[in-house]
Simulated assay, not measured.
Amino acid sequence: MREVRTLLEAAEVVARLREKDESALRYVMDRYGDNLLRTAYLLVKDRQAAEEAVQDTFLQAFRKIAQLNHPDQLHAWLVRIVVNRCRMQQRTWSWRHIFPTLGEKRLLLESDEPGPEEMFFDQWQSGSVSHAIHQLAYNYREVITLYYYHEMPIAEISGQLALNLNTVKARLARGRAQLKDILNREQEARP
């Protein structure tokens, strides 16, 4: 029953977005904003760049909502857009090449009471796993984030990123191996 309600809700929101209803856009931003921000932050390693990618995602989604053929895939479509925006940011030159950030900035989310997901993410963010993920090359960070954070199956990641299934599997395996090495080195370095 809940799944049917969610499908009807998604269809209604997409219909309102196609009519250029700004309240529907605000609803989508409230519903998916934190999730997309976390994803972008894990990929680009910078809060400002992540916020910019998410803003661009919502603007592009609002302008090109007619391209979404299946309203029930709104979330996956938004994730694809934010991943593409992050890829574009990784390719372009920016000021961070001149002024690299000093230390890692902690991603802060604005909410009164954190739910279980936020509590887990805060622990994860402040821990060494997030730091280790940020040390990976972008192509490994991308598949690791989609697989573990968004819990996407390998086939869906393959479709989202327009990669061969075996390429996604190889990147996951190499990313996991590199994460393990990074975490082991960090643990050995601790007193």
Rank of each mutant, 00 (worst) to 15 (best):
Q60L: 06
A61W: 09
A61P: 13
F62L: 05
I65D: 00
Q67P: 00
L68G: 01
H70M: 07
H70S: 07
P71F: 08
P71G: 05
Q73S: 11
Q73L: 03
Q73C: 02
H75F: 07
H75Q: 06
A76H: 09
W77Y: 14
V79R: 03
R80V: 01
I81V: 05
I81D: 04
I81P: 04
V82D: 12
V83Q: 01
R85C: 01
C86D: 06
C86E: 10
C86G: 11
C86S: 10
R87P: 04
Q89K: 09
Q89Y: 07
Q90A: 14
R91P: 04
R91Y: 12
T92Q: 15
T92P: 00
W93A: 14
R96M: 03
H97E: 08
I98M: 08
G103A: 10
G103D: 03
E104C: 03
R106E: 14
L108Y: 14
L109M: 13
E113F: 08
P114W: 05
G115T: 03
G115R: 08
P116L: 12
P116Q: 13
E117C: 07
E117M: 05
E118T: 05
M119Q: 11
F120D: 05
F121R: 02
D122S: 14
D122F: 09
D122H: 10
Q123G: 14
Q123T: 08
W124Q: 01
Q125I: 00
S126D: 12
G127P: 02
S128T: 10
S128H: 02
V129S: 13
S130L: 15
S130K: 02
H131L: 13
H131M: 10
A132Y: 05
A132H: 01
A132F: 02
A132L: 03
H134R: 15
A137C: 04
N139P: 15
Y140K: 15
R141A: 11
R141N: 09
E142V: 09
V143R: 05
T145S: 11
T145H: 06
Y147E: 02
Y147L: 02
Y148E: 01
Y149K: 06
H150Q: 08
E151T: 11
M152N: 08
M152A: 07
P153S: 01
A155Q: 15
A155C: 03
E156W: 05
I157E: 06
L161Y: 02
A162D: 11
A162H: 12
A162V: 03
N164D: 15
L165P: 02
T167N: 10
V168T: 06
V168R: 05
K169E: 07
R171Y: 10
R171F: 12
R171H: 08
L172E: 07
L172R: 06
R174M: 07
G175E: 08
R176W: 05
A177V: 01
Q178E: 13
L179E: 03
L179S: 04
K180Y: 15
I182L: 12
I182E: 04
I182Q: 09
L183K: 09
